[in-house]
Structures are given as structure tokens and as C-alpha cells.
């Protein structure tokens, strides 16, 4: 590469490759659990048999190499009393 090479703008194909690599990595990550919506609905149905609930939140986490699904069930206020 010439002295001025490093000042030159990156060719657009290289930029496309860089951007695609980032976008696809993120896409693949968010598609790891394609069943999340269905799972959420089923959990709600089961818990609703026993208690009124406001929401089920499912968080995806990664601790070291371990994938973790963190499921949080938020109950309705009234069920506490």
C-alpha cells in the first residue's frame, strides 16, 4: 500500500462486507430462539391457571459459554392480598 493508501477512503465492497458481518452476527443472535414468542404464550397460559399475571419477560443471557434464558413472571398486584 502506498503512503497515501491509508488516507484513501475504503472501497465500498469492503464497507459492505464489514457492515454485513456485524448485521448478520446480530441477526443470528436474535434468531437463536425462534420459539420465544410461542414459549411466552404457553407459559402465560399455564401460570394463569394458578394466578393472575401481568407479564412474562424472557431475557437472553450469555454467561461465559453458557446460554441462559431468564424467565421472569410478573404477577398482578391484586393477587398479593
Amino acid at each position: 500500500m502506498s503512503l497515501f493508501g491509508s488516507f484513501k477512503k475504503k472501497k465500498s465492497a469492503q464497507r459492505a462486507k464489514d457492515r454485513l458481518n456485524v448485521a448478520i452476527t446480530l441477526d443470528r443472535d436474535s434468531n437463536l430462539y425462534p420459539y420465544l414468542d410461542e414459549l411466552k404464550i404457553e407459559i402465560m397460559q399455564i401460570v394463569q391457571k394458578y394466578s393472575k399475571i401481568r407479564d412474562v419477560r424472557i431475557n437472553k443471557e450469555k454467561v461465559d459459554d453458557q446460554d441462559i434464558l431468564d424467565i421472569e413472571i410478573v404477577l398482578e398486584e391484586s393477587t398479593k392480598t
Binding site: A13, Q14, L20
Partner: peptide, 18 residues
């Protein structure tokens, strides 16, 4: 032409990505 100019992804790039 575009691949040679660096303005179109080469097949090598695409295979790397996919």
C-alpha cells in the same frame, strides 16, 4: 468490472459471510 474496482462484493467475500 465493479468487483475489480472494489465496488461490488466478490464471491469470496459473500462465501465468507454466509
Amino acid at each position: 468490472d465493479l468487483v475489480q474496482k472494489g465496488e461490488m462484493l466478490s464471491s469470496e467475500d459473500i462465501l465468507d459471510i454466509l
